[in-house]
Structure formats: C-alpha cells, structure tokens
C-alpha cells in the first residue's frame, strides 16, 4: 500500500514536471495575486485586480495564479508560499500592508506590488497602487444628490481605513457641492467627514450586514445607498431588488457592478470604478519590460485609473441637464478648478 502510493506520487510528480517543462518557453513570466478575505469572486475589489492579471494573460501571454486568504492569519503564509514561484506578487488591499512590507524586506529580490498602499519611505521592490477614488466618488455624490427624491443619501463602509473612507469623503463632498450650487439640503447619512466616524460593518464578507445596513439607512429615509465594502454591497443590492428601484437605488464600487452582478443590474444607479485592472496590468507590463521600480502608481480621473461607470439602464431617468453638469465637473476636477479632498 505504502510503496504503491509512493510510486504513484513519483509518477505524478514526473508527469507534472515534464508538462511544465514544455510549457515554460511560451510563458515564463508568472504574476500571482494574494486576495484579502473578500475572496477572488467578490464582484469588486479582488476580482477587479484579478481581471488585470487575466488581461495580462490574454495580451502579454503571462501565467497567472491566485491565492485566497480566508483569515487575516493567512496573509503572511500565503505570500510566503508564493515566494520564488512568481516573478511578481500582487497583494490586494490595505490590510495586507504589514505582511507585504515584512515579506518585501525579507526578500529584496522578489518584486511586489500592493493595491491601496503607499509605503513611506518607498521600498525598492514594491510598487504601490493608490487611487484618487474621491474624484470619481465626488461625481457619484453629485449625481446621487441630483437624483434623490427623499433628500437623503446613505453610505456605509467595510472597515474604517483610508481606501474605504476616501469613497465616503468624495461622495459626501460631491453631495455638498450640489447643495451649494442648487441651494438644496440633501443629507448624507452614515459618514461624518470631520469626525472621521460613520457606519462600518467591520468586515468585507457578510452579505447579511450589507442588507441590514442598507435597511437601516432606508428606514432613516435614504433612497440611494453607497456601500463601500466589496461583496457586502451585494446584500444591499438584494434589498434594493426586493424593495424596487424606485424606492432604493445602489451605487456600486470598484467594478462596474451593472456588468459584474448581472442578476441585479437594474438596481445600480452607477458605479464608482477603481480601475485596479488597469494599474495591475501596467505594473505587470513594467515588470516584464524591466522598467519596474519601487514607488507609487496613482490612478485618477485624468489617467482613467478611477471613473464613474456608464448609467446603462438609468440613462433615460437621469435628466440631460444633470448629465451636462457632471461632464463639466468632471473636466473641472481634471484641470484642478474643483479641488477634491484636502
């Protein structure tokens, strides 16, 4: 029994090694992604970054692998198990910041890239990818303020960390800007930009929380809700689906959720897109060409790193005037006439 198992193991090992031996010539660059606890199919954050790897697979002919983290204790272990097997390790999320830093310092010859984290001082083998998400969120806030019937908007986050709250800041600021322009009094529930406090589910995976938080905001009068919590927002979308779009609309984050969540696409007013796929692809490209260097890659409205998704089915519901104003504001943010953030 024991011996047969051993020979079988050896045979399989041999088979796999010859297989990979043949394949090596076509694609000898491997990019690996480590997700946070949201998982690879979270319809938003991790999935968008993974799309960048997949795009690179299709266009640059590289190999891609991913490793899902089930708990916070997995971060370091997951990164370690990819060391030496990947030309570039992409860690997705602010929460992997400490683990990535430790691994990068211990392995100076391994290239890393982390989404949503900028190290100061810069680590020579880590390219941080950060996003001026508040620029796109500003547009979403303005749009939502122009579309609300109840005069209240709602927002909640996953965890109170900068890459989450930057959405809430921009959204709040956009709605305030609308109020200033139009003399309206649209309220944003769930985030106080001055006190840095608001509604947080404290996780990135509970769909039940997404439903409950959206329900609470709806009960308080909000008819458009922005959940900034990855897959948690799918729970909010399910609630909007049941209540009906005229009562509650959802604004998606990270990906264009109209496309990634086709079953409930009608509930999304728009999405605040954080084009991690574009920046991930850019970093992979630079690593392949040998131009990779440690530092920060910033995605903004001007380089397409962040943007507002198309309105899709809501196109006819949004007044033309509002659309025109959005286009103007967008231009003003890009050329700096409107200052978003502090």
């Amino acid at each position: 029994m024991k011996r047969s198992l051993k020979t079988w193991l050896a045979a399989t090992l041999l088979a796999t090694s010859t297989l990979t031996g043949f394949g090596a010539a076509a694609a000898d660059f491997t990019a690996c992604e480590v997700t946070d606890t949201g998982g690879i199919d979270d319809n938003s954050f991790n999935q968008t970054a993974w799309k960048g790897v997949q795009d690179a697979q299709a266009k640059l002919g590289i190999k891609g692998r991913y490793l899902e983290s089930q708990a916070e204790t997995d971060y370091t272990a997951n990164i370690n198990s990819l060391l030496g097997q990947c030309d570039l390790i992409i860690t997705v999320g602010f929460l992997l910041g400490d683990a990535t830093k430790a691994a990068a310092e211990a392995n100076p010859n391994q290239k890393f890239s982390i989404v949503d984290y900028a190290y100061d001082p810069v680590l020579p083998n880590v390219a941080g990818q950060v996003y001026a998400t508040d620029q796109a969120a500003f547009l979403a806030g303005y749009l939502a303020a122009g579309m609300t019937k109840s005069g209240s908007l709602g927002v909640f986050g996953g965890i109170n960390i900068p890459p989450v709250t930057i959405f809430m800041d921009g959204f709040h600021q956009g709605a305030e800007y609308y109020n200033k322009q139009k003399g309206t009094k649209v309220k944003v529930l769930g985030w106080d930009p001055a006190k840095r406090e608001g509604l947080f589910t404290n996780n990135f995976d509970s769909l039940d929380d997404g439903r409950a938080f959206a329900q609470n905001l709806y009960d308080e009068g909000a008819d458009i809700v922005l959940p900034v919590a990855g897959p948690v927002g799918l729970g909010s979308a399910a609630l909007a689906n049941e209540l009906g779009v005229d009562k509650l609309k959802i604004i998606g984050v990270d990906a264009d959720l109209y496309l990634t969540d086709p079953e409930r696409k009608h509930v999304y007013l728009t999405s605040i897109m954080k084009r991690m796929d574009a920046t991930v692809m850019e970093v992979i490209d630079s690593a392949m060409k040998g131009t990779f260097k440690g530092g920060v890659v910033v995605g903004s409205l001007s380089n397409g790193g962040v943007d507002l998704a198309p309105l899709h089915d809501m196109e006819t519901m949004v007044p033309d005037e509002l659309k025109k104003e959005l286009a103007t504001i967008r231009q003003q943010i890009i050329d700096g006439t409107i200052k978003v953030g502090n």
Binding site: T37, Q70, A71, E72, T73, D74, L95, D98, N202, N203
Partner: peptide
C-alpha cells in the same frame, strides 16, 4: 501576528 486585529482568532 505580532499584533491584534478584529479577526485574529481566525
């Protein structure tokens, strides 16, 4: 881990 965060019991 070297620190505690909300899900460290895993």
């Amino acid at each position: 881990l070297g620190r505690a965060s909300s899900g460290f019991s895993a």
